[in-house]
Design a protein around this nucleic acid. Structure first.
Length: 797
DNA sequence: ATAGGGTTAG
């Protein structure tokens, strides 16, 4: 008897000692260990609620092993200890062990709390379906769900909900169960409605309305209720309603303010975001890492470098000791601020100094190098990365594509898949852009098919990339097909399609499309004008071009940049309006740079306007003496005038100055109508010989009855120094007729790419098919005749 | 309950 009493006293003492082991208490872990040790040394065997309490404390202070040990020593664990351990395993993320205990527990032993623990376990580990399923099992087995059950299952449902019906069913169940007065249940219900509203297959308005009604009918609201509604409106793009709610809140809760600030930032309302930040400061609302990261990110997107730095400085001054997590996210935002404001090296310094870095930090620096076109650094940085995600690959692929490394881009795209990443639509867009820069239609088509197969058919970014790809590969029809079947288009799509038409010489159609865009109420931007001006220039639409140029500032308030002026001048000069072009140059608000003089020189070359041409060339020699294009243009201008001595002089000048001719294309006009594309004439030091040869060919063309306005391509196969690919056609000049329909740039890309592959034969097959014209390739005495993708050979003369 | 990397058009 005495013994039993003393044991009870001891037990009570242990119980109260364990009461002190609140998991929030920093010494809880060691204290519980001490108490437990004392039990063992004094021979006290914990049982019942003391044992459960011990298990609970262990599991909540990340000493799960001890908890499990204790549990395993119990011959027949009661329902409380089982419940406790399920919660413990759930907290450590081990769903399997939790489910083991659950399934080994006989039905007659179970109770509602036990089910609640398992439902919560699923919910916390993001397995919404399992949680909902278990909830159904539980009701089927006649266990009565309580308010905790509903809170758990609703938060699980919020993870997976996709249909309005599910929301309504659960709502009914809540009402019937009589738990519809609990704030926590109703909060969870609101969040179910809100989450469902953001799913793409439902009408968000009616669901957010349902959430609103739940909110309005609540007997008691807490901070969470308000915040859930506010974030709900933010997520459903109704910032005004969110703002109304925030203003209706009595308490000024930082979380709610942060949510709205982030909403403003995501919708590009940077001023509003910053305004709220100022107000928070004024009202003395507690700022936290979320506030700082959002505000710095707002500054980054708005290009407010100084302000962003000030916010950071304020943070360092006021926050006593930011935790590592805190500084991580803020530093990540800071990295973006720096690189978006052009301070790439400074961003790298911050990166190096960061105490902790994560993938976000690495991706930010990768984007920095890519955005600056510093591809070598981007490549080596990418190589250093130990961990990569979809975003990493996407940034690198599109970075390569945009900087002219299409082949590398495609290689990386397939490597990415080999490493087990399913490309998202942005990744596809990058790969498609790679195809566009290479002019490889077959590859592009394949990607298009894969894109559709992966379910990204209606993706905006991929669609826009496809338009450009098809256009650059010479199939405008496919480009317009993509454009007209896209479910959603944006200004980028319009620009891409206008450019596609313009590049193909369909200037009138390009302009018509532009007019249609205006009628739809879409505002042109600076890129629209670049494309429209090029299109006019291409089609010789001087009046229209002038009108559009004037409307830029007059109607749309866009100040023309140097690139716009350059295109306008190009337009005027091609039309022979040199005096007007000079007036424009003089009226420009800035000193003319290289693009302006290049446009002038190009026009002079076409019209044989020697005086202005030389003048422009001299300016260019001063501005960019090593630029090969100037020499080519100048020598072509002399060639147009038949002044072969001067051509030779320019060539000599080029050699003396050590200017290397990049492989590429240029063209001259012979007798006003015949265009000749030259690809890399470095192997012909005597350029005169080439031109004489051309003249001879023109005569031959005439004899053969070709129309005098036919464009043809002169392609030197041998000139590709880096390649081994000396195919059958490699040593001679190849002349291709009938490429009018292929835009200049495409011709270069296709030739270059196929030449790299060493497959000239297929290059011409390809072109004959795409251009829909016949191509004749000279190869010594032999000729190859390409027609509609087929080839026949014969003797030339 | 709130935050921090990306894409497409010239």
């Amino acid at each position: 008897m005495k013994n039993a009493n003393s044991i009870r006293t001891i037990a009570n003492r242990y119980a109260s000692q364990l009461q002190l082991c609140d998991p929030k208490n920093p010494i809880a872990s060691s204290l519980s260990r001490t108490v437990h040790a004392h039990m063992i040394s004094s021979g006290f065997k914990p049982r019942g609620h003391i044992l459960n309490r011990l298990i609970d404390v262990y599991s909540k202070t990340s000493k799960l092993i001890y908890a499990r040990q204790l549990f395993d020593e119990i011959p027949q664990p009661d329902i409380v200890s089982r419940t406790t351990l399920i919660a413990a395993h759930s907290a450590s993320g081990n769903l399997k062990l939790a489910r083991d205990i659950f399934s080994k527990t006989p039905l007659q032993m179970r109770d509602t709390v036990f089910y609640n623990a398992m439902i919560t376990a699923y919910s916390h580990n993001n397995d919404g379906h399992a949680a909902v399923e278990l909830f159904c099992d539980m009701r089927r087995d006649n266990f009565k769900p309580d308010n905790f059950t509903f809170t758990s299952v609703l938060s699980a449902l919020a993870l997976v909900v996709g249909e309005e019906k599910q929301c309504m069913q659960m709502h009914c169940a809540v009402v019937k169960s009589g738990t519809g007065l609990f704030t926590s249940v109703l909060n969870a219900l609101i969040s179910v409605y809100v989450k469902c509203a953001s799913s793409p297959f439902v009408s968000s308005r009616s669901l957010i309305g349902a959430a609103r009604r739940v909110f309005d009918d609540m007997p008691k609201r807490d901070e969470l209720s308000w915040t859930t509604m506010i974030t709900g409106y933010v997520k459903n793009d109704d910032l005004e309603a969110a703002r109304e709610f925030l203003d209706g809140m009595n308490e000024k809760l930082g979380v709610a303010w942060n949510a709205l600030i982030s909403g403003y930032v995501h919708h590009d309302f940077y001023q509003e975001a910053l305004e709220m930040f100022r107000k928070m400061l004024m009202l003395g609302i507690q700022l936290d890492e979320f506030t700082y990261t959002s505000v710095i990110s707002a500054c980054a997107s708005a290009g407010l470098f100084q302000l962003g730095k000030q916010v950071h400085a304020y943070l360092l001054r006021t926050e006593a000791k930011p935790t590592l997590d805190f500084s991580l996210s803020v530093n990540n935002a800071l990295l973006t601020l720096y690189w978006k404001c052009g301070k790439i090296d400074e961003a790298r310094v911050i990166f190096n100094q960061m105490p902790v870095r994560d993938l976000v930090s690495w991706n930010a620096i990768l984007s920095a190098y890519v955005s600056a076109g510093r591809i070598d650094e981007a490549k080596s940085f990418f190589g250093e990365m130990r961990e990569r995600n979809l975003l990493t690959w996407t940034v690198m692929i599109s970075g390569l594509a945009q900087n002219g490394f299409g082949e590398d881009g495609l290689k990386l795209f397939s490597q990415m898949r080999l490493e087990g990443f399913e490309p998202c639509d942005y990744a596809f867009a990058g790969a498609i852009t790679s195809c566009a820069t290479l002019g490889v239609l077959g590859n592009g088509r394949q990607l298009h098919a894969q894109l559709v197969k992966s379910g990204y058919e209606s993706s905006l970014s991929a669609g826009n990339a496809l338009i450009t790809m098809y256009a650059r590969c010479g199939v405008v029809e496919a480009a317009s097909c993509v454009f007209y079947t896209m479910p959603n288009v944006d200004p980028v799509s319009w620009n891409a399609m206008i450019a596609a038409l313009g590049q193909h010489g369909d200037g009138v159609q390009a302009i018509e499309l532009y007019e249609r865009m205006l009628k739809k109420g879409i505002l042109p931007d600076r890129i629209t004008f670049l494309t429209v001006l090029s299109a006019c220039s291409h089609a010789g639409l001087v009046e229209e071009g002038r009108r559009y140029f004037d409307s830029m500032h007059g109607l749309y308030g866009i100040t023309p940049g140097e690139d716009h002026y350059a295109r306008f001048i190009d337009l005027l000069c091609r039309a022979g309006k040199f005096s007007e072009a000079k007036d424009v140059i003089e009226s420009m608000p800035f000193k003319p740079g290289a693009p302006i003089w290049e446009a002038l020189l190009a026009g002079c070359r076409i019209h044989g306007n020697m005086d202005s041409g030389i003048q422009a060339a001299e300016q260019l020699f001063q501005l960019i003496p090593q630029h090969d294009g100037t020499y080519v243009l100048l020598s072509n201008m002399y060639a147009t005038l038949g002044r072969w001595d001067d051509v030779a002089k320019v060539r000599k000048l080029m050699r003396d100055r050590g200017v290397k001719k990049e492989p590429g294309c240029s063209w001259i006009e012979v007798e006003n109508k015949v265009h000749v594309f030259l690809v890399d004439d470095t192997v012909h030091p005597e350029v005169q010989a080439v031109y004489e040869y051309l003249e001879q060919l023109v005569l031959e063309m005439r004899k053969l009855g070709y129309a005098p306005d036919t464009k043809f391509v002169l392609h030197d196969m041998e000139s590709d120094q880096k390649e081994h690919a000396l195919s059958t056609h490699s040593e001679k000049l190849a002349v291709a007729f009938g490429l009018m329909k292929l835009p200049h740039g495409v011709t270069i890309r296709v030739l270059k790419n196929l030449r790299i592959c060493g497959d000239c034969h297929n290059a011409f097959k390809f072109m004959s098919k795409v251009a829909g014209r016949e191509i004749v390739v000279r190869d010594g005495k032999r000729f190859h005749h390409f027609r509609n993708g087929e080839c026949s050979c014969g003797d030339y003369w």
